[in-house]
């Protein structure tokens, strides 16, 4: 997994609540599609017009936001379906970090499996950063520092964020969760052996 330590990049505001994973990537692009090609279909119904052309009104189609690597979003971002390609689609668009007041729980967990940093910040803070970015988009550079757990707005305002320590550690060092659990095989075997006596009906 790719490490995430510090990122200074353009931010794009998509300040609408309840952006669900169906909107991020449609399911019919996953059925039979290639996982490494989902990026071009990200936000498909917002990003493209019915004739296939780009929708000029969609914020991520506009300069300089099409080069943004940090997404500022409304509450409940990534709600809905558990589809992990929603994270892959954002990554393939170039995003490495999403800042929002709240996230869908499964999307939030999926981010950490892929080196994507989801940052929870108070709504008014996300809105304040988004307002700065919108006021001067060309200079809308935001710095996300996972080591220091801070976000610095374009004008230099610094905000601290909380993140669960194990997840921070895994992102900082690009640790693979499955590999780490594989090392606990003895504990898993011991658990199952005890559990088999206690709850034999589980082991069919």
């Amino acid at each position: 997994m790719e490490e995430f330590v510090r990122l200074r990049a353009l931010a794009a505001p998509l300040m609408r609540d309840n952006i669900d994973t169906d909107v991020i990537i449609r399911i019919d692009r996953l059925v039979g599609g290639r996982p490494d090609e989902v990026g071009k279909y990200a936000f498909e119904l917002l990003r493209y017009l019915p004739d296939g052309g780009e929708n000029p009104d969609f914020v991520l189609n506009r300069e300089p936001f099409r080069r943004a690597q940090i997404l500022l979003a409304g509450a409940n971002f990534g709600c809905g379906s558990s589809r992990e390609p929603a994270v892959w689609a954002l990554q393939q668009m170039g995003f490495r970090c999403v800042v929002a007041p709240s996230f869908g729980d499964i999307f939030f967990a999926n981010c950490f499996q892929n080196g994507m940093l989801p940052v929870v910040m108070e709504r008014r803070t996300v809105e304040a950063i988004a307002a700065e970015v919108e006021a001067d988009a060309a200079h809308g550079f935001v710095t996300v520092d996972l080591q220091k757990q801070t976000i610095v707005s374009p004008s230099g305002k610094e905000f601290r964020f909380e993140i669960e320590p194990a997840r921070r550690e895994a992102l900082l060092h690009g640790l693979d969760e499955i590999g780490m659990t594989m090392r606990r095989e003895a504990e898993i075997a011991a658990f199952q052996s005890r559990d088999r006596n206690r709850r034999p009906w589980i082991y069919r």
Partner: peptide
Amino acid sequence: GIGSTELVH
């Protein structure tokens, strides 16, 4: 519900 990486886990 879980994602694909968790599913492999």
